[in-house]
Simulated assay, not measured.
Amino acid sequence: MGDDVVTKDAAISRESFAQRLLIGSVKKSYDPVVDMDWDAPLDPGKFFLPPEVVSLYGTPLWDAMTPEQRRELSRQELANVLSVGIWFENLLNRLLLRELMSGDPTSRHAHYTLTEMGDECRHMMMFGKLIDRIDARPYWPRPAGRLVISSLQVFLRGSMVWVGALVGEEIFDALQRRTLDDPELQPLVARAMRIHVTEEARHIGFARDALARRVPELSRSEIAYTRLCVAVAAPLFVYLLTNQHMYRRAGLDDPRAARRVARRNPAAKRALGIGAASLGAFLEKQGLMGSIGKRIWQQQGLL
């Protein structure tokens, strides 16, 4: 009887939270086709990512670059970030679709899941249009990479659906929030970031709520598996952000050396650490950040 009451109360609470998110989506959502001025000219003197977020910022290699080379690197890094965003949101939508197959299609939770998937579809289109508008090329995985990305849905189940969502969303979101009002940033890029941040805030709240509700029901083996996946997520995230091909396209002489410099760059690690701080604290509070994961996240600059 007592357990039934708790379960019923938890379901009501979950539905109430999803309903608030649905109302928020009605009040403030965007369509990038009409809410972005795609014909606005780009400013030749502005960056595509704020300098302090660019992976080589603060290194001797950065100091030796001309202003034009720095802006070009920021353009290539933005194209890479947007490409990773498209891969991730594609994968996330597949995971959410699978969740819907075992859920109640009449629930507010299911309805918000569908709403989030619609948001993510528009984000993928916005990212693709932005890559095209800045005259860049997407960083698309080769067949082996596509196979790896597609296979992740096999391993991301249960609590890991929401951990994966948070790792992919929260760190980028925190970095974007720091740069929205940067006067050196291209206005078109700032507008895209503002749209993404506004809608991702609801997605992050949804994922945190779903994960926090699942944790008390996890077995020891599930917690151990989730902690392992959390640990693996850190080096994968840093690897994707320091794609050596973006240094090659930016015209640097030794792309592999540039990637090594970027991965050791204290300024880049500080930027990542600020972005991941809230997520790291949340995962630790939920008991999903083990000692090995914490050590790896610290080594990668995420804590």
Score class of each variant (00 low, 15 high):
D3Q: 09
T7K: 09
D9H: 05
S13R: 05
E15W: 01
F17Q: 12
F17T: 03
A18S: 14
L22W: 04
L22K: 03
S25N: 04
K27P: 00
L42E: 10
D43S: 06
G45N: 13
G45M: 05
K46T: 03
F48D: 01
S55D: 08
L56E: 03
P60Q: 04
T66I: 10
E68L: 12
R71P: 10
E72H: 12
S74E: 11
Q76N: 08
N80R: 04
N80V: 07
F88L: 11
E89S: 04
N93W: 03
L95V: 09
L97P: 00
L97D: 12
L100Q: 09
H109C: 06
T113Q: 04
L114V: 14
T115D: 14
E116N: 01
E116Q: 14
E116A: 09
M117H: 07
M117E: 10
G118V: 00
C121H: 14
C121F: 09
C121Y: 09
R122P: 04
M124P: 01
I131M: 07
I131T: 13
R133C: 08
R137I: 13
R137T: 15
L147T: 03
S150G: 13
S151N: 06
S151E: 12
L156E: 05
G164N: 02
L166N: 01
V167I: 15
E170P: 03
A174Q: 13
A174T: 04
Q176V: 01
R178H: 06
D182L: 02
L188M: 15
R194L: 10
E200I: 01
I204N: 12
G205C: 01
L211M: 10
R220I: 10
I223N: 03
T226D: 09
L228W: 13
A233V: 02
V238I: 13
L241S: 07
T242E: 12
T242I: 05
H245R: 06
Y247I: 00
R249H: 09
D253P: 00
P255F: 08
R256T: 14
A258S: 14
A262G: 09
A262D: 06
A262Y: 06
R263K: 11
K269A: 15
K269C: 10
K269V: 04
G273L: 03
A276Y: 10
G280T: 13
F282A: 14
K285T: 14
K285H: 13
Q286C: 15
M289G: 13
M289D: 11
W297F: 13
G301A: 06
L303S: 13
